[in-house]
Design a protein around this nucleic acid. Structure first.
Length: 526
DNA sequence: TTGTGTTTTATTGCCTCC
DNA sequence: GGAGGCAATAAAACACAA
């Protein structure tokens, strides 16, 4: 009897232990973690401790969470890369452009090469393979960072929008830089980063090699036609052409349904490089996304955002949205946090925050698992400036001051983190204009180039490596400003670019359109 | 309501770097 | 050898369709 009761209590104990076994993190914790993760992909021990304290978790949990989070990122991007790889084979467009660096994981299984870059750079490598990521991230950034950049990006942290940063840095390569590199006088490919041993002399192999030779010929032909106009500091391509009436290129067809690309048209897609190169992919990928989210869900979200966590309406909509998202979720999920929204929603509000954050378990899932919501909120978040401002302040205080402020010391201590090639790579590459290439706004480009240069000069080596990220920061800020500008005022330049394409298609036999054709036809060949 | 699939969390072992 | 990270695995929590 005694034995049995003892046993029972032990069982209860065990069951209690079992109940404890796996505890879901609260919405607020997740938000904070996500935000922090966005800023510090590899937090130092102190950061972990602090975060653990703030979130009332154990350091172990924090470490584990970050570890899993990274794995998740990796996995998602891998999946995405695989998916895109398939698309590339069918569309035959992008891959070789990105192949300058990214082919390994896709073409051959030279995993070892990653090691030379950095084990942690695998993700960024994935970006190379992941052509959608570049534009996607760009678009995401444009859509979701405008208000938040000043906050989230204001951190001179290790990763400061780690993925985005690299994504953009890399984004330039597949679409613009590589062709330019083709034009390098001596024919050698300049290193993309100082570390760049891996990159140096890299050459596509197999499918990409053959394909690259064909397509690069076409691309190079176009480049040659464009001549210096295509160069970084060259004049605007578009200035050659007469301006068309406003809206002339807003949509080629009256029927948006038949022109998903146009409907879905994110600002960046005005970029000829990308639009030409990615049309297939983007149209297939974005149309569903943008047609669904930019229109209907966007409105929904606007409505939702103000009342973050209540209303049956939202609940229903969330469910609906969740279903819509489901197929896309794997990719977007990991950047939900990127929005830079309040990292510690309840931590610094009050306990109700937790309640509100966790108000609905559904919402919890919604906002974490299907991060799209949050992101899209940001894309439409001009309507919630106050809210964003409040969050910004808090985020700034916590993420920036709470951690980054102490970073130099800590980073110093955790040399491991600092010494990561990812930093050097990023630092070395970011200053080169990155996403502005995607913008194809030459005017903006020039301006931003100046800003970047200035930023470089101003912030370089102020404080060692820890401060290098400031360089990124400033450059990013400048870029973001431009992005904002670009985003808000869509597009005289973009239209010019578009016109350029169309005009090219009409007037020049070997032009972007031909390039496209070449790509398309080449895609048929493989 | 239940079965199934997905996501998240926790654990463990291995590897690399210092 | 220790620390940190990655990958594999198991299990809990959750979502969703039948």
């Amino acid at each position: 009897m005694k034995e049995s009761s003892k046993l029972q209590s032990e069982e209860n104990k065990v069951s209690n232990e079992k109940n404890k076994k796996r505890k879901l993190k609260t919405q607020s914790q997740l938000s904070a973690l996500e935000t922090f993760y966005d800023e510090h992909k590899y937090p130092t021990e102190e950061m972990k401790v602090e975060l653990a304290e703030k979130l009332r978790l154990t350091e172990k949990q924090i470490s584990g969470w970050f570890c899993h989070r990274r794995l998740k990122d990796k996995r998602l991007m891998k999946d995405e890369a695989v998916a895109n790889g398939r698309q590339d084979r069918s569309s035959g467009v992008i891959q070789d452009r990105g192949s300058g660096l990214g082919q390994d994981s896709c073409g051959s299984s030279k995993h070892a090469d990653y090691r030379y870059l950095d084990a942690k750079e695998v993700e960024s490598h994935d970006f190379y393979n992941n052509e959608i990521s570049v534009a996607d991230m760009t678009h995401r950034r444009m859509n979701h960072y405008p208000e938040n950049v000043s906050v989230v990006d204001d951190t001179s942290s290790e990763s400061s929008s780690f993925l985005q940063e690299r994504a953009f840095a890399q984004g330039q390569d597949p679409y613009d830089m590589e062709p330019s590199r083709h034009l390098t006088p001596n024919g050698a490919l300049p290193p993309l980063n100082p570390k760049g041993a891996v990159n140096l002399g890299y050459k596509p192999s197999g499918y990409l090699k053959v394909k690259g030779e064909i397509e690069h010929a076409a691309i190079t032909a176009v480049k040659k036609q464009l001549g210096r106009h295509y160069e970084e500091d060259g004049p605007l391509l578009g200035i050659e052409f007469d301006l068309l009436p406003p809206g002339a290129f807003e949509c080629q067809t009256e029927d948006p349904a038949n022109e998903p690309f146009c409907v879905a048209n994110p600002p960046l897609l005005n970029s000829p490089e990308i639009s030409a190169a990615k049309k297939h992919n983007l149209s297939s990928r974005y149309d569903s996304h943008y047609t669904k989210f930019n229109s209907q869900d966007l409105h929904m979200e606007r409505a939702d955002f103000g009342s973050l966590h209540e209303s049956d309406f939202q609940d229903k909509q969330d469910k609906k949205a969740r279903q819509n998202i489901k197929q896309r979720q794997p990719y977007y999920g990991y950047t939900n946090h990127v929005s830079g929204r309040n990292p510690f929603p309840d931590l610094y509000e009050d306990s109700t925050g937790e309640a509100s954050g966790y108000n609905s378990a559904k919402n919890h899932r919604m906002s974490t698992k299907h991060g799209v919501e949050g992101m899209r909120s940001d894309s439409a978040s001009n309507h919630s400036d106050h809210f964003e401002e409040k969050l910004a302040v808090k985020t700034k205080d916590l993420v920036l001051h709470g951690y980054d402020k102490i970073n130099p010391k800590r980073i110093q201590k955790s040399g491991h983190v600092k010494s990561k090639p990812s930093s050097s790579i990023r630092n070395s590459r970011v200053p080169i204009d990155t996403e502005e290439r995607g913008l194809s706004a030459r005017m903006a480009k020039e301006e931003m180039f100046k800003v970047d240069k200035k930023a470089k000069n101003t912030y370089r080596d102020v404080d060692g490596a820890g401060r290098l990220s400031n360089e990124i920061l400033v450059a990013k800020r400048a870029k973001v400003d431009m992005l904002q500008q670009y985003h808000v005022k869509p597009s005289p330049v973009a239209e010019m670019e578009k016109r350029k394409i169309h005009r090219s298609a009409a007037e020049m036999p070997s032009s972007f359109s031909e390039d496209e054709t070449a790509e398309t036809s080449s895609s048929l060949d493989y």
